[in-house]
Amino acid sequence: MRVIIVEDEEPARQLLRKYLSEHSNIDIIAECPDGYSAVMAINKEKPDLVLLDIQLPRLNGFEVLELIDHNPQVIFATAYDEFAIKAFERNATDYLLKPFSKERLTTALDKVRSRLVTETAPATPSAEVSTELAAGMPITRIVVKDAKGINIVPVSEVHYLEAQDDYVMIYSAKGRYMKKQTLKHFEDGLSPDQFVRVHRSFITNITQIERLEPYEKESFIAIMKSGARVKVSSSGYKNLREKLHF
């Protein structure tokens, strides 16, 4: 079994190495001290299993999972118990609370082995559930990958989002980014003080709206500060009125 360890603390890595060394046919193919190098290594090496910390430099454990093309089995290893629900929603095989025993890791590895036998590939993470909300954290930044690499988009720089089939197009100060995700996910996860669903296909950052113009009957067009034009439906208009009190 090919394993990648993603862990920023050296003593914790040492412990994992020691525990894993007592198992036969486990091959540690990479150790990554931060989230970014983890994404690169996982995409390159396509491991069977990733041992993943959550609080990591650069990209956190969940962001790493959003950015990888390959779907390995994941065992989370963290000192935080509050992310367990979110982790299992991401179809994690197990969730270890630090410090954990050798036996506890063995149990987790047994789960991995039985999954490897029964499933050809782990199910893809469900995008239906708003995982940020499940963990009680509003989205503060969006990570997206394109041909040039990984981009971090702070939500304050997002102008608006548009649903496009299975993807969401994110329009920001620095350009636009496409992410495989539902608009509902962003509607639930983004701060409702700043973002309003104005249309079946659009969410806008209300601080970026320049003005509203009437368009056909009962619908409007929001002219953004960037000059972009965003459709506003009659119910979207109602949402905006409630938020902006006009």
């Binding site: 003593p11 914790a12 040492q14 000192a79 935080y80 630090k98 410090p99």
Partner: peptide
Amino acid sequence: NPHFLFNSLNSVSSLTIT
């Protein structure tokens, strides 16, 4: 902070071996 405590205990756990 309990997270600090757990992370430190994890380091201790590692040091007991190394």
